[in-house]
């Protein structure tokens, strides 16, 4: 399969606080939040890439950078082998789209469903709108004139997906598309996404907190920790015998119906302003070694399409 998108050493730093004019005059140093810190990944066409990690690990930022809603502080993006420059952004946005976390708040609550869905197109094409609304499993005549605040959580999520499908994107970033839903509706939305992906031959970047959902839908898994990829590989391997100590602890924190226990890691996620020296997971790592406190591990290859950033696998 060919590569559809790649990130090369991408960094996204946000200014942690607004600086007043006095701060600039007296040269108070700028403080940055390192939301994405040197991320490199190559994504093959037609796959579902699950992105997992704790809150603040940079999942949404990675999605926003890929759809060019955020410009990287450093590093390069390539779409189908072609470098993504600022001049290319409008073109990229036609082919790469994103369904945002919390559609209930990201969609205009007073807009009618048919207008929400047709907006990306720039003009009103009823038959096209009707087609995608039916595709996502909603009754067109029932919902077309409703405002999004009049819909249930599952319906709002479907409308957000329908809107993204209007442009027939080749790559779709889905940010936590099911986390606000109950299990039964979550199952419906996941089934829908799987069908749409094979019908439209899309690539998904599927961001989620929910490991069971990631396990169901993804072909590959990216594990982010404090702005960095710590493990990347086929879902069946990463989620059944994870290599990175963080992935292991993340998985044993997930309640399942198999084991009646959870084993959480100690401590909290580090501040993205003051990261620990060396490996950024070292203060919480049960296997920490001398070297880990000094040098940051790079991504080390573990066979085809499998990489892990940990000195244990050097």
């Amino acid at each position: 399969m060919s590569e559809i998108y790649s990130l090369k050493n991408v960094k996204k730093y946000y200014l942690a606080q607004k600086r007043g004019i006095i701060d600039a005059i007296v040269k108070v140093p700028k403080i940055y939040v390192r939301a994405l810190d040197d991320v490199s990944i190559s994504i093959a066409d037609g796959n579902v890439i699950g992105v997992v990690g704790e809150s603040g690990s940079g999942k949404s930022t990675m999605g926003k950078v890929m759809v060019t809603l955020e410009t990287p502080t450093d590093g390069e993006l390539y779409f189908k082998g072609k470098k993504v420059t600022k001049a290319e952004y409008p073109n990229i946005r036609k082919q790469v789209d994103m369904v945002f976390q919390n559609p209930a708040t990201s969609l205009n609550p007073k807009m009618k469903v048919k207008d929400i869905v047709s907006e990306p197109l720039g003009h009103f094409d009823e038959s096209a709108i009707k087609e995608v609304i039916l595709k996502v499993g909603l009754a067109y005549d029932e919902v077309k004139d409703k405002q999004s605040r009049e819909l249930s959580g599952g319906q709002v999520q479907r409308v957000a997906i329908a809107r993204a499908l209007m442009k027939r994107p080749e790559l779709l970033v889905l940010d936590e598309p099911t986390s606000a839903l109950d299990e039964s509706i979550q199952a419906q939305v996941l089934n829908l996404l799987v069908d749409l992906q094979s019908e439209y031959k899309m690539t998904y970047i599927f961001i989620t907190h929910n490991i069971l959902v990631a396990k169901y839908i993804s072909d590959y898994i990216v594990v982010l920790y404090a702005g960095k990829i710590v493990e990347y590989g086929p879902t069946s391997e990463v989620l059944s015998k994870p290599l990175h100590p963080y992935t292991q602890l993340l998985l044993s924190s997930v309640p399942t119906l198999d084991v009646k226990d959870v084993k959480p890691p100690i401590g909290d996620v580090p501040s993205l302003i003051n990261l620990p020296q060396g490996c950024r997971f070292n203060p919480r790592c049960p296997f920490v070694m001398e070297k880990c406190r000094k040098e940051e591990p790079p991504l080390i290859s573990q066979g085809q399409n499998y990489q892990v950033a940990c000195w244990l696998y050097e």
């Binding site: 907190h209 602890l249 993340l250 044993s252 924190s253 959870v262």
Partner: peptide, 11 residues
């Protein structure tokens, strides 16, 4: 909460 913190609270 995150799953890791959730697991801490559960414990």
């Amino acid at each position: 909460l995150d799953v890791t913190i959730q697991a801490q609270v559960v414990k």
